[in-house]
Amino acid sequence: MSTHTHQGHDHGHDHDGHEHEGMLEDVELSERARRVLAMEELLAEKGVVDRTEVQRLIDFQEARSPVDGARVVARAWTDPDYKGRLLSDPEGALLELGYPLVGSAKLAVLENTDAVHHLVVCTLCSCYPTSLLGLPPDWYKSFAYRSRAVVDPRGVMREFGLDVGDTEVRVVDSTADLRYLVLPQRPAGTEGMTEEELVALVTRDSMIGVGVALAPVA
């Protein structure tokens, strides 16, 4: 059987009349998946974990997307006190907006300014603030991005359409226990916009550092 990824409709095989493909996939769990399921069953049986709680954590993680990060950024743009807390105590600041970093790596926030532009990469694997932004884009995990971002960050950013000019570039290689979120600069011309309107300007790429926040539509 050809490859498939257990992610909905992302199949490599053709649909030639198998009426129960979903069931077929169920019996073809990988070694790792079966091990995880067996461990989960054991832990639940022995009362170490609560299945409801496990499902709640899975649901919370699967619901995360860059919009969540955008909400945090927009709040920081509109509330200087919140921005201060976000930079000094990211965990507490995220919790204020309903994003607990339970069971996940600590988060650190890198503020972009007129003087400094941050770009985040993980050269060793693909460390990413998934607990806030959801799963990383495929290119973030690519060998090309991981190897080039640390040597030629300006070239990489230009390929994303970003030229930061005279601004100092700081590439942060996320190799250990911290996950980095870039706090992009608030675009010019957004003074009259509400927090909710600003959320739409904060792109995923601007929170990784390969982009900046969108300009407001005139």
């Binding site: 300006r154 070239g155 005279d166």
Partner: peptide
């Protein structure tokens, strides 16, 4: 091999 101006930096987590 560095392509940027002096002043560009790389920050790495190290134990």
């Amino acid at each position: 091999r560095a392509t940027g101006p002096s002043g560009d930096r790389l920050l790495v987590d190290v134990y």
